[in-house]
Nucleic acid binder design. Structure first.
Length: 424
RNA sequence: GCGGUAUUGGCGAAGUGGUUAACGCACCGGAUUGUGGCUCCGGCACGCGUGGGUUCGAUUCCCACAUACCGCCCCA
């Protein structure tokens, strides 16, 4: 093979591209109901946009960034996630200005890049759909974001949804908790895994998320963030829970849940799927939360934000079999069979007219015999076949065959408009 | 970044250190000089991921590289 796609990339071919369109369309429709509008930002940004926002200790920055120096010597990175670029655009375009209704609600969808070892459902170029809302500290917007994510997944008929929430509190809560965690973990330092040792002082919250069995055991009795919340943080989280209760949404609080990105605080949430093609047990399909402070971090005013992101490749694996079958099935209204060179002009006109009537219409382009053309019509799942041979041409008619029933009748060319009623 | 497995026609898949690389599906043609879904017949890999090496001779052995998949790490 002379050329292969770059490692960790994928071609999205028909009919699977239909599934992508389906997901994207449902996302647009769902978000529109919540009055979110689309924002499109560059696929690459200055490296610092991501390193500043994600946190210097995050894995994304330290080892997964797809970065390079361009010809002008600029340090560029392909976006590893959507939020940083949106925040940069929010600040640069001064969407925090008084003329913009708050909160500013936007969504995006598109490719993201992480330089890592590909595995199934994990590519170097992958796609995310995400939303962000800026300018409200109200728990209402936290809840709305969560509901929107749930609605979207429900609309796609993804089953087994499970909502898990937690809070990271505000800065004060987090600082207090951070210290408590360090105090708790330090006596166990020697028992910790190497990764956790490294994280203990840089970002102790991440230790909670360790996959190491022994770490998990140590962490089991660690102090919980919920006990270190300031009054305000406590209130915020309580409101979020109450509103979810009001809406009758089931959820569980997992106080050990953290985030891979450093910019989150207050409410964080994950929508998980129990036992799915993604793996046994609960797997996260959609993750998000609040990120007050990030706008300032990127040079803007003190404006809060909340959002979520979800991976499209993973989501597609969760579409149920019926949805996939429906989306992938071929459907043609008409196939026009022409017999002989003399009728080509009539075929041309009929095909054109059928398309003008909004019928999905196909014809033969390979000068094949009627038998082969009918075979194609069958393969393409055509509902009707129009046949034009020399005799039909001379009589100014065409044959119309219902491929399902097999019935065939003759229609005058001048009456072609009556076909409008055929398919409702 | 580390470890394991794999790579044969459009797809699936057998196979051997030696002058014909099974089979199935799909596709094309014919049986049926203008009509599909069934049947029968025929066609379809100067080639076995790429590049080296060993050998009289390699798709089959060795090495390197590429890519895919699985696991670790991490996460979407």
């Amino acid at each position: 093979m002379k050329y292969q796609k770059p490692k960790g990339t994928a071609d999205i071919l028909p009919p699977f591209s239909k599934e992508w369109q389906f997901v994207e369309q449902n996302a647009r429709e769902t978000f529109a109901l919540y009055n979110y509008e689309e924002i499109r930002t560059p696929i690459f940004e200055k490296f610092e946009v991501f390193s500043r926002s994600a946190g210097d200790t995050s894995d994304i920055v330290t080892k997964e960034m797809y970065d390079f120096d361009d010809k002008g010597g600029r340090h560029i990175a392909l976006r590893p996630e959507g939020t940083a670029g949106v925040v940069r655009a929010f600040v640069e375009n001064k969407l925090y200005g008084p003329e913009h209704q708050k909160p500013v609600k936007v969504y995006y969808m598109g490719p993201m890049f992480r330089y890592e070892r590909p595995q199934s459902g994990r590519l170097r170029e992958f796609h995310q759909i995400g939303v962000e809302a800026f300018g409200s500290d109200s728990p209402k917007i936290d809840v709305e974001t969560i509901m929107m994510g749930m609605d979207f997944l429900k609309k796609l008929k993804v089953s087994g949804l499970k909502l898990v929430i937690n809070t990271l509190g505000d800065k004060e809560s987090r600082d207090r908790y951070r210290q408590a965690l360090i105090d708790y973990l330090e006596p166990h330092f020697e028992e910790l895994s190497d990764d956790s040792k490294a994280r203990l002082h840089k970002n102790p919250l991440r230790v909670l998320d360790s996959k190491d069995k022994n770490d998990q055991k140590i962490v089991e009795n660690a102090p919980e963030i919920l006990d270190f919340l300031t009054e305000d943080a406590q209130k915020h989280f309580t409101s979020v829970k109450e509103e979810l209760d009001t809406l009758g949404v089931d959820y569980v609080v997992d106080s050990s849940m953290v985030r891979g990105l450093d910019y989150y605080n207050h409410t964080i949430f994950e929508i998980m799927i129990a036992d799915s093609p993604l793996g046994k047990g609960d797997v996260t399909i959609c993750a998000g939360g609040r990120y007050n402070g990030l706008v300032e971090e990127l040079g803007g005013p003190e404006v809060s934000g909340v959002g979520f992101g979800l991976g499209v490749e993973r989501l597609l694996l969760l579409l149920n079999a019926e949805t996939q079958t429906t989306l992938q099935s071929k459907q043609l209204d008409f196939y026009v069979v022409g017999i002989g060179d003399l009728v080509q002009n009539d075929v041309l006109k009929v095909v054109h007219e059928l398309r003008q009537m909004n019928f999905v219409t196909e014809q033969d382009y390979l000068d094949r015999k009627p038998k082969a053309q009918f075979k194609s019509a069958d393969k393409l799942n055509a509902k009707y076949v129009v046949t034009i041979g020399e005799s039909e041409m001379n009589d100014r008619v065409f044959k119309l065959k219902d491929m399902h029933s097999g019935e065939e009748r003759t229609v005058a060319l001048s009456e072609i408009n009556t076909l409008k009623d055929l398919l409702k």
